[in-house]
């Protein structure tokens, strides 16, 4: 539907949508054309299973794993972080907000914070040993790899010896920051180079745009 501002200014729905996209671009590292190109991606994802203009968890799962079914700890966390309003669906605005963090030019602090929230499964404000254990165990199961409990404990011990500097058995936000700055490869997944040339990846936005960057 049209927003109040556009109704009161008697703008057409098309112009209204352009105004909303322009507003979203203002508050993100994306240009208006890039937001429009991402809207093409959003439209495609949000109608893949339920055609309602919102991304449901199954649709995100389908896009990431080529199959909409099955429990996945990581997908649950990613979806939860995208879904700011916690209403079980991802709206376009939420999609842009979350993808902004993955932009190559997004501030590193935002990437560090987002990654922390991904790993803080129970949202306690700390990354705890059990959470790390749970994530490693989930990957082992997912990839059908076998690792002895002894080796798994050793890996987690070593990781905590390095990351948990006050030795209280959990990693705080501050400890996490120091740790990832020492191991920047851990933030590799937090940057999507595709976002730098999203207009080339989704050229169909050109048919809908009224704006030239």
């Amino acid at each position: 539907g049209q927003c109040f501002d556009c109704r009161s200014r008697r703008r057409s729905p098309q112009t209204c949508q352009q105004a909303n996209l322009a507003l979203l671009a203002l508050d993100s590292p994306f240009s208006v054309n890039e937001v429009e190109a991402l809207y093409e991606l959003f439209k495609k994802l949000s109608c893949s299973i339920i055609d309602d203009g919102l991304i449901h968890k199954e649709e995100l799962q389908l896009a990431l794993f080529q199959a909409p079914y099955g429990e996945n700890l990581f997908l649950d966390r990613v979806f939860d972080l995208f879904d700011e309003k916690k209403n079980g669906v991802i709206e376009f605005e939420e999609f842009i907000h979350a993808l902004s963090v993955f932009h190559p030019y997004a501030p590193i602090d935002e990437k560090i914070h987002f990654a922390f929230r991904l790993y803080d499964l129970r949202q306690t404000g700390f990354i705890e040993r059990e959470e790390v254990h749970q994530m490693v165990a989930a990957i082992l199961m997912e990839s059908e790899m076998i690792l002895s409990d002894e080796l798994l404990t050793m890996i987690i011990d070593k990781t905590f010896a390095d990351a948990d500097s006050d030795k209280d058995g959990k990693i705080s936000k501050e400890e996490w920051k120091v740790y990832v700055l020492k191991h920047p490869t851990l933030l590799k997944n937090m940057t999507l180079p595709y976002l730098k040339d999203v207009t080339t990846a989704f050229p169909s936005f050109v048919f809908n745009t009224e704006v030239e960057d």
């Binding site: 794993f65 700890l73 987690i156 070593k158 390095d162 191991h183 851990l186 590799k188 999507l192």
Partner: peptide, 25 residues
Amino acid sequence: KFFNAFEFISSMSSGFDLSSLFESK
């Protein structure tokens, strides 16, 4: 190879790799 739990998680979990959103276009 993986002596760091987070390195293992970030490089092995497909759910944390959003690049496939763009590859599936």
